[in-house]
Amino acid sequence: MVYRYELKKLLLSPLLLTLTLLCVLANLTFLLVEHDNAPSPRQTNRPEDVLAAQDASIFDGYSAASIAESYIRWYRLEGTNAEHVRAKYDALQPVIDRKAAADEKPQLHFSGQVSDVHVLLFGKLLKFFSQEVGLLALLTALLSAVYEQMRGTESIVYASRVGRQVQLTKLWVTLSASAVLSLMVIGCSLLIFFALFDFAIPWQADVSSVFDHALGETKPFITWNDLTVAEYLWASLGISMGLAWLCALIGFAAGTGFRSVYAAFGACVLLFTAFDLVARSSLLPVGSMLKSAWGLNPMWLWKNSGTWFTDGRAEMLWANFERLGLCAYSILFASAVWGAYHLLRRREIH
């Protein structure tokens, strides 16, 4: 019963609904601008843009070590850091060999316009809506966690032992509401994308070979696991949703742990700023364990959404870093929520 009422409060909040609508409108504007700037089909009738796929065994004889060496040269890595990068790409070599040998999925090679649409979907749109749903989830969680304090009903609700447990119900409600709002944003954005752009790609083809290069780079698009295009899209949406829940946990931990709404908000701003700025700076050298561990944070994961399920460039030393980061930070902030909840149960409310 409490769950239903709390969920209704959040999902029917005019502010959250307006924010959801704003996110969809922002994506619509972005996609319309991209559509406007895209070359017309007549202009793309060059041989390299023809959609007909060619069989291309791009992984036959491909050496992961060459990727490692190009990063080592680019970042001027030396010593242990260079060895870390080499070790990661050594681990990627069997994956490449397996992809070269596998024949159950068609290895097709596209380039030109198809590749551009791939960059638009997985490199830009995915980044935008995963950040938007993360922000929505964070604000939903803050609103839910401080709702009683905001309305001045805290002293009534928390007067009893059962009342203090409402906060736990609010957590489940926050996660549910975040999921519903995220689905609205992601669903509408994808609908607009598929209505505007012709994503004429065989969904069952291997995503590693469908596109000729990783986003913004010259190396192939290599995923650690064998994923079809459809599986890759679903998996990326799963990570976006996971990041939204992670943000909900961060917001809920801050909202429950801090007595002041403003302190909770300030702590979130500080945390995300630190995540972003430290990851961008040269404070932590590329190839170091510290840089890689820091890069597991949600800000870096959003920034590099186009590399999910792939090698993750030289900054990332571990396979499947997006799931690793999601799990590690989810455990960390779930523990923070748990700690904040137990503090609340014992807290003196004035």
Binding site: L15, L16, L19, L139, L142, Y147, M150, V261, Y262, F265
Partner: peptide, 11 residues
């Protein structure tokens, strides 16, 4: 209140 304001000032 402050929370509704924060939801407005973030965007």
């Amino acid at each position: 209140n402050l929370m509704t304001l924060l939801i407005k000032i973030v965007p």
